[in-house]
Structures are given as C-alpha cells and as structure tokens.
Amino acid sequence: MTTRRLLLTLLSTAALLAAASATAQQQRPIRLVVPYAAGGPIDVTARALAERVRDTLGPVIIDNKPGAGGNIGADIVAKAAPDGYTIGIAATATNAVNPWLYSKIPFNAATDFAPITQMVRVPNVLVMNAETAKRLKIDSVRDLIAYAKANPAKLNYGSGGNGSAGHLAGEMFKKEAGIFAVHIPYNGGNPAQLALLSGQVDFNFDNLATAAPNIRSGKLKALAVTTAERSSMLPEVPTVAATLKGFSVDTWWGLMAPAGTPPEVIAKLNKAFVDALHSPETKTRFASLLAEPVGNSPEQFGAFMKSELTKYEKVVKATGAHVD
C-alpha cells in the first residue's frame, strides 16, 4: 500500500470514527429529573413534553426522585454536570417555598440552577362548602371578608398541612384582608377537601384540578381563583385580586438545568420545550389536567422564580411553619 493510499485510509477511518462519535453523542438521552412520584400532574406533564421534543432533542428519560418535599430531586439537578444532559423540574415548593420552610436544605434555590422555561401554571381556587356559603349568605370574596370581620374568630379553613400551598395561600389571604380564621391542617389535600365537603371547615384554598369536579356538581362554591387573571378553565369565576389588589398565588412548575450550563445549550432546550408547550396537542392534553401551558424565555422564568422566592419568604416566616 502506497503512502498516499495509507494516508487516505487513515483519514477516512478517522472521519468515520468522528461521525460515529457525533451520532452517539446526539443519541445520548437527556435525563429529566421529576422530584415527585410518578402519576401526579407534574409527572404527567413532564412525560407528555418528553414525547413532544423527541424529534428535536432525542430521547428524554423521566427519572422520578421523590422525597423531602421535592428537595431530593432538586438537589440531584443542582449537583449534576452542567452539560444539558441532566435537567429537572422547578416547582413552587422546591424553588420558592422549601428554602424558607426547611431548616436545612442541600441546595441554593437562587444560585444553583439555570432556568429554561416555565411549563405551566395551575390556578388555586377559594372554595366554600355550598351549603355553608348559602347559610352564611356568602356569595363573593367581599362577603367572606365582611362576615369574618363581623364575626371574629368564627371562621376556619383547612389545608393539606403546615407549609402546604393551601396553608400559605390562606395565611396570605388573612393578612391582605385583615381578618382572622383558624387554620386546621390535614394530612394531605384529599382529607382537607373531605373536611370541607362535610362542613368541618368553612373554606379552603384548593388546587383547581382537584376542586373542579365538586364545583361543577354544586357541592362546592367557587368564590375566586387566586391567579392574577381569570382562569380560562373557570372563566366565570372572578379573581381574589379583584377584591384584594395584587393578590396572586398559584401552583407552577417549569424546567431548570444546573447552574453553569452554557447559554447556547439553554437556548436549544428552551426552543424545543417552548415549541412543544405551544403545540395544539400539548394544550389539549394539559387542559384535561386543568393546567395552563406558559412557555417563556429563560430570563422571564428566572425573574419569575426570583419574585416567587421573595414572596414566599415573607409568607412562610409569617406563618411560623418549618420542617426540621
């Protein structure tokens, strides 16, 4: 074999190896860490998006890592290599509430993550037992506040536990409205809703997806949604903010990567997931969960998470709730 032919063979082999390496890298799956158990709304929406971005990003493998209120999964993301192949779910609890609720937390929510995009928001709704609302002649947020002020300490509300979304929303409502109501914590959202349905508590701040069936059946009366704007899922129901200006509490989650992930990698992930969120198929799928797709820029999602972290610092400290 001549020297020239040998050189050409070597170059051809090198090119084939480089192409094979590039293909292998392209096929390397992205690990999407969901810090909650399989089957819940966050897990379902993550799996739906993973399927939608397969053509642009390749395989996205869902890795459920529940525990410690989401802290275990979030910590895995925080400590992963910042190469775009490990990303995770950022949620109200992990990135806004837990840093103030837990006395010890293994990551810094403000500095250990690079935002990709907000995925969805799920409105919470202020609900009363329909019979209780009728008996007390409460038909609106304004009526509820007026009754509470005229009857100090006679109202109570339930939640899924100390530090839960329903508890924090209730405390924020009391503070903004200038009223008092006894908080009764239950071991989870379902027991809290059962207590409301049976008349053991007067009102709750519940997840819209959970409360909707009982609202539609007439067992619960929806006084207001807690988002800044009316929900497309319940357009006839006003906002709490219509009575208490600036009031805004909802459940949200999105996508984040480890801090230090290159901007070009974040941009690629953002485009793929935002396109998926804006697709008609995704909107239809999420509507069944009463989840509203968002899809925004990394900068917008980062600013939003920063504002949520600041907001919940005040709320959690005001409640005195903490987890050792």
Results as ranks from 00 to 15, higher is better:
36 Y>Q: 09
138 I>Y: 06
257 A>R: 02
139 D>P: 00
115 P>V: 08
200 Q>I: 02
175 K>R: 15
50 A>K: 07
324 D>S: 15
184 I>R: 15
98 N>D: 12
245 K>T: 03
269 L>R: 14
152 P>L: 10
66 P>M: 03
149 K>I: 03
274 V>S: 08
81 A>C: 02
310 T>I: 06
153 A>H: 15
188 G>A: 05
291 A>N: 11
246 G>A: 05
191 P>K: 11
257 A>K: 06
284 T>M: 08
229 E>T: 11
95 N>Q: 13
110 A>V: 07
112 D>R: 11
303 A>S: 06
5 R>M: 08
108 N>Q: 12
250 D>T: 06
315 V>N: 04
7 L>W: 09
141 V>F: 07
5 R>E: 08
163 G>C: 11
109 A>I: 07
275 D>S: 13
122 V>L: 11
130 A>R: 05
15 A>M: 14
159 S>P: 00
47 R>H: 10
105 I>T: 13
108 N>P: 00
43 D>A: 12
185 P>Q: 07
280 P>F: 11
100 W>K: 09
82 P>G: 01
158 G>I: 10
309 L>W: 12
69 G>V: 06
170 G>L: 04
263 P>K: 09
7 L>A: 14
27 Q>L: 13
136 L>S: 00
168 L>N: 07
104 K>M: 07
112 D>M: 11
55 D>V: 04
289 L>K: 03
175 K>S: 11
9 T>F: 10
299 E>C: 07
153 A>Q: 12
221 K>A: 09
58 G>Q: 09
204 N>T: 07
185 P>K: 09
106 P>R: 10
224 A>T: 04
213 P>N: 12
231 S>L: 11
77 V>Y: 10
102 Y>M: 08
261 T>A: 01
142 R>Q: 13
115 P>I: 04
196 L>Y: 10
85 Y>G: 00
40 G>C: 00
27 Q>W: 08
171 E>N: 08
78 A>V: 03
202 D>Q: 13
245 K>Y: 04
141 V>H: 04
237 V>Q: 09
304 F>K: 02
124 N>L: 14
124 N>Y: 15
302 G>I: 08
186 Y>R: 12
100 W>N: 01
116 I>D: 02
201 V>I: 15
189 G>D: 13
212 A>P: 00
244 L>M: 05
172 M>S: 11
114 A>H: 06
120 V>M: 14
102 Y>Q: 13
259 A>W: 03
199 G>H: 11
239 T>R: 10
213 P>Y: 15
48 A>W: 14
312 Y>D: 03
98 N>S: 14
168 L>T: 10
314 K>W: 08
247 F>I: 05
84 G>C: 01
138 I>N: 05
30 I>W: 11
128 M>F: 01
145 I>W: 09
79 K>L: 08
241 A>W: 01
256 M>H: 12
63 D>W: 06
51 E>T: 10
321 A>P: 00
271 K>I: 00
149 K>P: 00
274 V>I: 04
301 F>Y: 15
103 S>K: 14
56 T>C: 06
155 L>W: 05
195 A>P: 00
261 T>W: 02
16 L>E: 04
51 E>M: 07
38 A>P: 00
175 K>G: 03
246 G>I: 10
168 L>F: 12
77 V>P: 02
2 T>W: 02
239 T>D: 01
300 Q>M: 03
83 D>R: 09
55 D>L: 01
278 H>Q: 15
197 L>M: 12
148 A>Q: 10
269 L>E: 06
205 F>V: 06
22 A>K: 11
254 G>M: 12
9 T>V: 13
269 L>A: 10
12 S>T: 09
